[in-house]
Simulated scan of single mutants.
Amino acid sequence: MQNTNKTVVKSMEILRLFIAHDQLTLNEMIELSGMPKTSVHRMASSLADMGLLEKQETGVYRLGLMFLEYGQLVADRLDIRRIARPFMESLRDEVGEAVQLIVREGDEAIYVEKIEGTQPVRLYTAVGRRSPLYAGACARSILSFLPESERLAYIDSIELGKIGIGTITDKEVLRNMLEESNARGYTLSYSELENYTAAIGAPIFNHLGEVAAGISIAGFEAGYQKERLPYLIKQVKKAASDISRELGFSEQIKSQ
């Protein structure tokens, strides 16, 4: 820290004030920072010249539009597979089931990462596989948490085809299931994509509070009986929450 530039550090202290405040006057920045008036005035002017702050006609300062550009760059460059994988491995080690990560592509879900379970028999899902958003807990973990208008529009436009013996083919049943999943924070499926298998999924949210991906565990139905479900659900939701937090999500964003 010996080579730290004091001006840069103080400028960052000024910028950090705007994490908790939408806008500030010069006097408010002086009061909150405890810095001399001349220093704050000089730094605020320089930050405004660089586009990091924006001075309104009323004299108040706000964060500049450049932060939107930087923020979008950070969001675009976040590799969800890289971020999610350690949590997926921990989840697999905890429950012993296969763990899958999906993202949405149009009306489909695409599997972008998978970690095999500890069981000797493997499920046939693989990276690159696609499935409709309505089928299976993993895909429905995205569909269930889209805005309600988007969910309803999807249901109206889609034709529900049978894939496994448990695939939902009734739109009213699907609509009710999506509402229930949204309320409880996870999805559950039995024999929807592959007969005699089960899955539990949960949504992953980004820094904007939007559902960005879904994570699920999957295995044979015998391992997903009623007495074990609460434990499995808790672990899947925890992994989804941990990944969401790494993507910049917080409950405060969701409640806004």
Rank of each mutant, 00 (worst) to 15 (best):
S46D: 07
I19D: 14
T118I: 05
D93M: 05
I165N: 05
S149D: 12
L174V: 04
N206D: 12
A239M: 12
M43Y: 14
D22Y: 12
Y190A: 02
Q225K: 12
S46C: 05
R175K: 14
E97D: 12
K6V: 13
R184L: 15
L174P: 14
R81L: 01
V60I: 10
L247Y: 02
L174N: 06
L178C: 07
E13M: 13
A137T: 04
L47Y: 01
S191T: 03
E221T: 14
L160F: 00
G201Q: 04
G136S: 02
L91R: 11
G34H: 01
L26R: 15
V173Q: 13
V103W: 05
G117V: 00
L32T: 09
R42Y: 00
T7P: 04
S181M: 14
T4P: 00
K6P: 06
L229D: 01
E172P: 06
T169H: 04
I110E: 03
R92F: 02
V127D: 04
S45G: 11
R81S: 03
S39H: 09
G248E: 04
G185P: 11
I217H: 01
G223D: 08
G214A: 03
E150D: 11
L247K: 10
I233P: 12
L146I: 05
E172C: 08
T25R: 10
G161I: 12
C138P: 08
G128E: 09
S131G: 14
A109H: 02
V8C: 05
R85I: 08
R104V: 00
G161R: 13
G136E: 01
G248M: 06
E108C: 04
Y61F: 02
Q119K: 08
A98Q: 14
L232A: 06
E116Y: 04
G117Q: 09
I217P: 07
L53I: 01
L208H: 12
R130G: 03
D242H: 10
F205D: 10
N195A: 06
Q256G: 11
A183I: 02
R175D: 05
D79F: 07
S250T: 11
E194I: 13
T38K: 14
K162Y: 03
N176D: 14
A213D: 02
L78E: 03
L160C: 09
N176C: 07
P86E: 02
E89C: 06
Q256V: 12
V236D: 10
L26F: 04
L174T: 00
R77I: 06
Y111E: 15
P230H: 00
E180N: 07
R228V: 03
S149T: 11
M35E: 10
